Amino acid sequence: MKKKVVLAIFTLQGNGAERFALTLAKGINDAGHEAHIVYFKDIIDLPIPEGVQTHFFDYQKFRAIPKFMRAGIASKAFDKFVLKQIGTPDLVLSNLFPVDFILCRSQLPNVHMVIHNTTSQEYAGRLDNKTLAQLKNIYLSKPCVGVSQGVTDDFKKLFGSENITTIYNPIDLDSIHAAANEYVPEINGPYIVNVGKFKAQKRHDILIQAYAKANIQEKLVLVGTGELMEQSKALVKSLNIEDKVIFAGFKKNPYPYIKHAKLMVVSSDFEGFSIAILESLALGKPVISTDCPSGPNEILLPSNLVPLQDFSAMAEKMGMAVKNEKDFYQRIDDKFLLHKAVNLYLNLISESK
């Protein structure tokens, strides 16, 4: 029987969770079911897969409501919106905090919250008793899904709850390869690449310092934008490597940049999963990554990992990888493929009945 799945997300602007929602929606449709994406802020920067239906729920008008009342009022409006525009769903997947804050009060059937990051790391330094109580009110209200085993383990430890299962973020090999062939980046000479938002979690400062220390001929291409981009540019200037580092900006389709790179490097302090690693492997590229509390070490071999915040170790590994790329290449485990994730998410429907 055809199932109806709603994926709720704040915007369709970004990379990780946003690309996850679009990829899973495509996979659900391809499996003969019906996927709908409901987004809260009217920004779409990412390509929408053919056949995936999108619906704009205008959350902005609820911003004037005091926060202690907002979730209850907005959740009722969200439920009414879904029932009118889509019908009764078999499964609702809530993605990221602004949406989770609302959908924790939803009365729609079978609402699950997808946890995209290690919560203890995401709220590090501000996880006092009040904040923890607020998060518990949200995330213990519905069953949850962790996008990696590390995310799930962190959730269980932080909240003392077993009401969470692990479903790895999937990749769609065909779509990635097709998108990677859409254009060729205008970059002269070989380069290594990083794709990610310029924010504290991603530690572009570590990557830039490691790149400067590695002293390799390949350029460094940084794909993305964010609040710390100017700070990263200042660091590049201070290290006198402006002629070797390219700030490419946000790309709706970053895959050609990955395809034509020699190497992908991930420098994050923490990741929920890092789907960019899988996408790079799908395009036949080796990946060097920090050994985050979750994500990279569930995908990559130990030889491809370096300790957190150790730019000297990262510099050494980058130098080795550009000289001997094949030594760092690895195949993708089938458990990360799209059809596997689709089946596991659809199983949440039968488990709820």
Rank of each mutant, 00 (worst) to 15 (best):
175 S>L: 05
279 E>W: 07
321 A>F: 06
197 K>F: 02
327 D>N: 14
194 N>F: 07
176 I>P: 01
262 K>R: 14
11 T>R: 14
311 F>T: 02
325 E>F: 05
229 M>W: 01
327 D>S: 14
126 R>V: 12
107 Q>G: 14
303 S>C: 04
22 L>P: 01
127 L>W: 11
88 T>A: 13
94 S>A: 14
197 K>P: 00
235 L>F: 03
338 L>Y: 03
3 K>R: 15
336 F>Y: 15
227 E>F: 01
173 L>S: 13
195 V>N: 03
324 N>P: 02
187 I>E: 04
136 K>N: 06
108 L>G: 03
245 V>W: 10
186 E>Q: 14
264 M>V: 15
59 Y>M: 13
104 C>P: 00
79 D>M: 10
44 I>C: 09
333 D>G: 06
231 Q>E: 15
342 V>Q: 10
225 T>S: 15
227 E>V: 13
302 P>N: 14
175 S>V: 03
191 Y>S: 06
31 A>H: 06
266 V>M: 13
200 A>S: 11
218 E>I: 09
40 F>K: 04
326 K>G: 00
75 S>G: 06
241 I>F: 10
288 I>H: 03
226 G>F: 07
73 I>C: 04
127 L>H: 11
238 S>V: 11
5 V>I: 15
187 I>T: 08
348 L>C: 05
21 A>H: 04
26 K>H: 10
325 E>W: 01
251 K>D: 01
308 L>N: 07
69 M>S: 11
121 Q>V: 00
126 R>L: 04
224 G>E: 07
200 A>M: 07
231 Q>L: 09
340 K>W: 00
153 D>W: 02
206 I>C: 11
342 V>A: 10
208 I>V: 13
319 G>I: 14
286 P>D: 05
329 Y>K: 15
208 I>N: 06
288 I>Q: 04
212 A>W: 08
257 Y>V: 03
312 S>C: 05
63 R>A: 13
102 I>V: 15
31 A>L: 05
248 A>M: 11
311 F>P: 00
106 S>K: 13
269 D>Q: 13
185 P>W: 13
43 I>F: 04
346 L>H: 07
343 N>T: 13
245 V>G: 08
113 M>W: 02
141 S>G: 05
223 V>C: 08
278 L>G: 01
3 K>D: 00
349 I>H: 06
144 C>D: 06
160 G>S: 08
315 A>C: 07
29 N>S: 07
305 L>N: 06
9 I>N: 11
228 L>W: 08
343 N>R: 14
234 A>W: 04
263 L>G: 07
83 L>R: 15
243 D>M: 03
12 L>A: 11
343 N>D: 13
317 K>V: 06
278 L>S: 04
236 V>S: 10
284 G>K: 12
166 T>R: 11
67 K>R: 15
177 H>F: 02
335 K>V: 12
